[in-house]
């Protein structure tokens, strides 16, 4: 299973953000997207989900074209998205948020059990309104909601931003478990230590394109690539 992107252009109205982007993510591997602010990392994830219109280029999952599909059809093909800032359905309960996540797969109770096993803290909060959860619990719920889709590809946009270390560790553990289950994980992450610990590959973005792809084996925290592309 592979997600392949070739020559992708996309943006907001007259503003083009992605300029001929090429990218590949594979099952059971974690691919990190890194780059300075404004290079188009979040825009790329939105384009993959069909949430912004795509100009030219192709997006294929197992050889099946995804570009041009209405946004609501994309999750049915196996892509799930955890947006930056979580974007939970705040007034809905935890259980209802998870139910929205499971709509596409018919809300299979076995899937919900597996997801709650991954984030047991949510099991005690099912009746709680999502907007009243702590920041860490909200992030767990955002990931759990996406997992209820049973995705082939999971897109995570800075999932550990602003969280305390113990919660970050929990979320990273969950991402590793998902990798072990054969999910292709695409992770937007700015922290070098997290990238080196989790990722199999890093795609460095510059001005709407993937400029360089590096295997994390043999990549050190002081590698010039991080300074060049991320500025750290």
């Amino acid at each position: 299973m592979a997600l392949e992107v070739q020559g992708l252009t996309a943006g907001y109205g007259p503003v083009t953000v992605l300029r001929g982007l090429g990218f590949r993510a594979e099952a059971g591997r974690i691919t990190c997207l890194m780059g300075r602010n404004g290079v188009g990392k979040s825009t790329f994830l939105k384009a993959l989900m069909g949430l912004i219109p795509v100009g030219t280029g192709t997006i294929t999952l197992d050889g099946v074209a995804l570009q041009g599909l209405p946004a609501h059809q994309v999750p049915k093909r196996g892509l799930a998205y955890v947006p930056q800032g979580r974007r939970l359905f705040g007034p809905l309960t935890v259980a209802e948020n998870l139910a929205v996540g499971g709509l596409v797969r018919g809300n299979d109770p076995a899937v919900l059990e597996r997801v709650l096993d991954l984030f047991p803290r949510l099991r005690d909060r099912l009746a709680q309104v999502a907007g009243t959860l702590s920041g860490g619990e909200q992030q767990m719920l955002a990931i759990a909601r996406a997992l209820c889709l049973e995705p082939k590809v999971l897109l995570l946009d800075e999932p550990t931003e602003g969280l305390q270390p113990s919660i970050i560790a929990l979320i990273q553990e969950a991402v590793v478990v998902l990798k072990g289950q054969g999910v292709a994980v695409v992770l937007v992450e700015q922290r070098v230590d997290a990238v080196l610990r989790l990722a199999d590959r890093v795609a460095f973005m510059v001005a709407g394109r993937v400029e360089e792809v590096r295997d994390t084996r043999g990549l050190a925290a002081d590698d010039p690539a991080f300074r060049t592309y991320v500025g750290v």
């Binding site: 609501h72 007034p91 709509l103």
Partner: peptide
Amino acid sequence: VDRMTAQAFGINV
């Protein structure tokens, strides 16, 4: 609550 996120979960808005 959120039209865009609803679409990302397969809801035909």
